[in-house]
């Protein structure tokens, strides 16, 4: 019987030298492939005496299986090593930023406008939008701002023609709503308005939000009750309102509405100039002449109306002191309003 120990030593030595897949397949070809050394042994079968043939065959197979096992073990080892190498190779700096762009956000005025809309929508107000270019009739006359009345001077108007103008307030929306709907009416009218005024606290274009409620038995008490609700949701649970007399041609009585200072809680601070109160909006009981101008019988119905400056509320909420910031659109400013 031929001794295979020499071959086995050779195989052992060779497999130990194998370091990667290429060497491994070289090894396969050298020993286990069709032309390999072990396959070659089978060819010697011819020269083996017939009685030894079974034994010889078995021995060769044993060598083959033995080598095969060595091969498989090596194969597994190399696969493991290669995977490790791949992981090593593919390792990234996980701390490198993934973000290509800063996330954008809504303009602070939109943000606050939307918050305010939500409060009133929750109270059942419909949200209506109307043209920014108005006529004298809707912007003034039917709102009881008569031609010869000095209240026209309260608002510096941009005129386009004798009759057409850039609306100076969202109040014409009251008229447009009442022309189209009958009580009960609960409408909120946000939008851009224009006045020829420009300084740290005025911009020629700014945003207002008009509110109008018309039904039987609406009173000044409803105005305050509703606005109390509004300021609590915008400025926090502790906020309350104070009414004080004012004048708007389209409401009577007219009031300025102050909110208790959310900075100091009413004790007095620089924000509220020591008074404990901050002026936030104007409103009142709808002037009966305005109802009459819209074909609503003031003997049956009454209403309340209010107008809120969105910039004013936004400035108060975020501590912005210059109106110009809203329209300068600097990213350093814009990107602060994540909500």
């Amino acid at each position: 019987m031929k001794d295979f120990s020499e071959i086995k030593e050779q195989v052992k030595a060779k497999i130990a030298e194998v370091k990667d897949g290429a060497q491994l397949s070289e090894f396969w070809q050298s020993y286990l492939g069709k032309t390999g050394v072990i396959s070659g042994l089978m060819k010697e079968m011819k020269s083996v005496p017939p009685e030894e043939k079974p034994l010889f065959g078995k021995a060769v197979n044993e060598v083959r299986e033995w080598a095969q096992e060595l091969y498989s073990a090596k194969q597994a080892e190399i696969k493991r090593i290669e995977l490790e190498q791949r992981y090593e190779r593919e390792t990234v700096d996980v701390t490198m930023p993934a973000l290509k762009r800063k996330p954008g956000n809504l303009h602070p005025l939109t943000l606050v406008k939307q918050q305010m809309i939500e409060v009133f929508a929750g109270m059942g107000f419909e949200i209506a939008e109307y043209p920014e270019i108005e006529d004298d009739d809707h912007n003034f006359t039917r709102l009881n701002v008569l031609k010869d009345h000095p209240s026209r001077d309260m608002q510096d108007t941009f005129w386009l023609t004798e009759d057409l103008l850039l609306r100076t307030h969202t109040s014409p929306g009251q008229i447009r709503t009442m022309d189209r709907e009958k009580p009960p009416i609960k409408v909120l009218i946000p939008g851009k308005v224009f006045r020829s005024d420009s300084d740290a606290t005025h911009s020629p274009m700014f945003m207002q939000m008009e509110g109008l409620v018309v039904d039987k038995g609406i009173t000044l008490c409803d105005l305050q009750g509703m606005l109390d609700q509004f300021v609590r949701q915008i400025f926090g649970d502790g906020a309350k309102t104070r009414l004080r007399p004012s004048y708007f041609p389209f409401t009577e009585p007219s009031v300025e509405v102050d909110v208790s200072c959310f900075e100091c809680g009413g004790k007095g601070c620089s924000l509220c100039k020591g008074t404990g109160w901050i002026e936030v909006l104007g409103g009142g009981v709808v002037n009966k002449k305005v109802l009459e101008n819209c074909g609503i019988d003031p003997e049956v119905y009454s209403g309340l109306a209010f107008g809120i400056g969105i910039e004013r509320i936004t400035m108060l909420k975020y501590g912005i002191t210059n109106m110009g910031m809203f329209f300068a659109n600097d990213m350093d400013f814009l990107e602060q309003f994540k909500a």
């Binding site: 419909e126 949200i127 009960p184 038995g217 008490c221 305050q224 009750g225 509703m226 009414l243």
Partner: peptide
Amino acid sequence: YSHVIPRFLDSAKVTNGGLTFLQ
């Protein structure tokens, strides 16, 4: 004005509000 009693809309209680489809 301190005599005014805040009251939340005894009338006009139920109206359909909210944003329109386009808003």
